[in-house]
């Protein structure tokens, strides 16, 4: 498998490219069963969790999504979740009424809530706060939820944080320990503008890929369905620590906006044997 630099690296022009899913459309087929598998993919079962039909409360179908963090990344992910037809809540650092204008403009259709309430009513909780403020996340409300860590350690913004500085583990393993819940690492290796600009329907040759790393294949599968519905090819990795290659500076994956074939090839070049 070789990288093809000229295929599908074109940037999206304004207004170009349809959203991947229209509200009401069900989840796309998970990529767990189709196409070449990355070497690091665990052979876990097809996710069974949450497969018992769409929920009906709120607007949209499928697993309820809560996004904790209403900044650059959080507002984009909430917008994509709404566009994928998922009932979506979003929480900032405080009173949800302060979020009204931001949600109206950046993620219309999402419901502003207090962080603990948003997490408690959701199936999938996307944590998108600066790592320096991770302790403000209501960890107790995350128990029993599928938790997605989209964060990166970014010293120019966060300052130097001793837990993450020079860490040899994946940053998501540290997040898991701080929050005390299992997490799936995803969405971290594309920029928020790129996430916004690159949504494509399944099968589009320009579609970008998002890797997901986690310990439990069924849980990863549920998040993979969300990734797919949001307009990206999911590429599962196992276990959580394998997500280290997705971090800033760890490989040529972070910030590169790769197609599925390109991402798989890059993963193979990083870890030729199984991870």
């Amino acid at each position: 498998m070789t990288r093809t630099p000229d295929s599908g690296t074109r940037a999206a022009a304004p207004g170009e490219g349809p959203r991947t899913a229209v509200p009401g459309e069900g989840p796309q087929a998970s990529a767990l069963g189709d196409g070449p598998r990355p070497a690091a993919l665990g052979d876990g079962p097809r996710p069974a969790a949450l497969a018992d039909g769409p929920r009906t409360a709120g607007s949209g179908d499928g697993p309820r999504v809560a996004v904790l963090g209403a900044g650059k990344v959080g507002t984009v992910l909430a917008r994509l979740a709404v566009a994928a037809g998922r009932p979506t809540a979003i929480a900032g650092s405080g009173d949800p009424t302060a979020l009204g204008l931001i949600v109206d403009v950046l993620a219309p259709g999402a419901t502003p809530m207090w962080a603990a309430d948003a997490a408690a009513q959701a199936d999938i909780v996307i944590v998108a706060v600066p790592l320096a403020r991770l302790e403000t996340v209501p960890a107790a409300a995350l128990r029993g939820r599928i938790v997605v860590d989209v964060m990166n350690y970014w010293p120019p913004v966060d300052g130097v944080l001793s837990q993450w500085e020079n860490a040899t583990r994946s940053s998501s393993e540290i997040v898991r320990d701080v929050l005390g819940v299992d997490v799936v690492k995803s969405f971290n290796h594309m920029g928020y503008h790129e996430l916004d600009a690159w949504t494509r329907p399944a099968g589009d040759p320009d579609r970008r890929a998002l890797a997901l790393a986690g310990d439990d294949p069924a849980t990863v599968g549920v998040v993979a369905e969300l990734v797919d519905a949001m307009g990206f090819d999911p590429v599962p990795l196992h276990p959580l620590g394998a997500g280290h290659v997705l971090q800033p500076g760890s490989s040529d994956i972070f910030g590169a906006n790769l197609t599925r074939a390109e991402l798989l090839a890059t993963l193979e070049s990083v870890a030729p044997a199984n991870t």
Partner: peptide, 19 residues
């Protein structure tokens, strides 16, 4: 910056220019 410790790859540079 943290994302390109070995320097920005040319492919990413060309992608940014197109963007």
């Amino acid at each position: 910056l943290p994302q390109f410790p070995g320097g920005m790859p040319r492919e990413v540079y060309d992608q940014w220019i197109r963007a």
